[in-house]
């Protein structure tokens, strides 16, 4: 590796995040008495739990990442997810759908999310308003529809069997050598991997991906360079809506319950993670790899607080610190690039 390449690498946030993640893994490994990584087998009870937590957060982070690369903020994706899955599960329950297969429900949630996302896209692309303000408005609007207008209720034990069975699928099963306790690697991890691959492909290999980076870098230049800014933004926000609906439904399956207000405030843990992973708050920057590393850090911390002997109050402290560090690093980098 030549020095120029090394120098370039050390300038990237992802590089430091990866170091943090490795140090953290080492710390948890030591404090837990070797429960995080146990060779020769790859999976342990602790790391499958961390991976499981990463599924929903990681997929939401992908939503947030693509929006941030385009220079926008989407605060409404948790509200879209919540309205999509709450409406879907209520419809399925009332009509007796999805008793054996979850596919219709997943498609329905995506369709609802797509429609909601289109509303975001339409407002943002047509009126050229600040994305944060627009999505803050639509977030409240969607929550209002769910809780006020439709009065959607929690669905727990009565959740259609198709969803419950789907959420319990696993691709690996084993038992903890020490205690004999069974553990499984949720099959939902495959969705996270697939989504990361797809987003990575779109960002790096397609015109749409290039358009996102260009718009995020400088919208006026992008427009002059021939990118259709309006159409790109409309497509982006509608796609993120559909994706949010899908992710919400995956969460419902994994938890075997549909709770309309479970997503409230979710954006406030996801967006900092994406910033921490190297996405710029000014747009034009961000990678799938950095985002996955950052989500990994947060999932690992939240799943090992007790093992590390950290009081639960300190988790809030940690989350606050993440926001501060992430935003500061991002702002400093943007400043350095200008000079």
């Amino acid at each position: 590796m030549n020095t120029a390449k090394l120098k370039r690498m050390t300038r990237r946030t992802e590089f430091y995040m990866l170091i943090v993640l490795i140090l953290l893994i080492a710390l948890v490994q030591v404090r837990s008495g070797g429960k995080l990584i146990a060779l020769p087998g790859v999976f342990t009870r602790l790391n499958v739990t961390v991976l499981r937590t990463m599924v929903v957060d990681g997929m939401f982070a992908m939503c947030s990442l693509v929006v941030m690369i385009s220079g926008g903020f989407d605060l409404s994706f948790p509200a879209i997810a919540a309205l999509s899955y709450s409406l879907t599960t209520t419809l399925c329950l009332n009509n007796g759908w999805c008793q054996s297969s979850p596919i219709a429900g997943l498609l329905l949630a995506m369709a609802i999310g797509w429609v909601l996302g289109m509303l975001n896209g339409w407002i943002i692309s047509n009126f050229k308003l600040n994305t944060m303000i627009v999505t803050l408005g639509t977030q409240t609007f969607f929550t209002g529809i769910s809780m006020g207008l439709l009065k959607l209720k929690e669905i727990t034990s009565t959740l259609p069997e198709g969803f419950k069975a789907f959420g319990k699928l696993y691709i690996f099963e084993s038992a903890d050598p020490a205690s004999g306790i069974r553990f499984t690697l949720s099959a939902m991890v495959l969705f996270l991997i697939a989504l990361c691959a797809i987003v990575s492909f779109i960002l790096n290999k397609t015109m749409f991906g290039r358009a996102l980076y260009a718009i995020g870098g400088n919208e006026v230049s992008a427009e002059r360079a021939g990118y259709n800014v309006k159409r790109t933004k409309f497509l982006l926000y509608s796609a993120v809506g559909a994706l949010a609906g899908f992710i919400g439904m995956i969460r419902v399956c994994m938890e075997s319950q549909s709770i309309p207000k479970a997503m409230v405030g979710k954006e406030m843990t996801i967006i900092p993670a994406v910033i921490l992973g190297g996405a710029s708050i000014y747009g034009g920057e961000g990678t799938v790899f950095g985002t996955v590393v950052a989500v990994g850090i947060i999932s690992l911390v939240s799943n090992s607080m007790l093992i590390l002997g950290i009081d639960t109050y300190w988790q809030q402290f940690f989350n606050g610190l993440v926001i501060l560090v992430g935003v500061t690093v991002s702002a400093l980098q943007a400043k350095r690039q200008k000079h």
């Binding site: 739990t49 205690s179 306790i181 938890e255 799943n303 607080m305």
Partner: peptide, 21 residues
């Protein structure tokens, strides 16, 4: 004593962690 922020998902995670510890 542990707190789950009145969230069943958190109660699930805590139980997993507690059994580990």
């Amino acid at each position: 004593r542990v707190e789950d922020n009145s969230d069943a998902q958190e109660a699930y995670n805590l139980t997993m962690q507690l059994k580990e510890k």
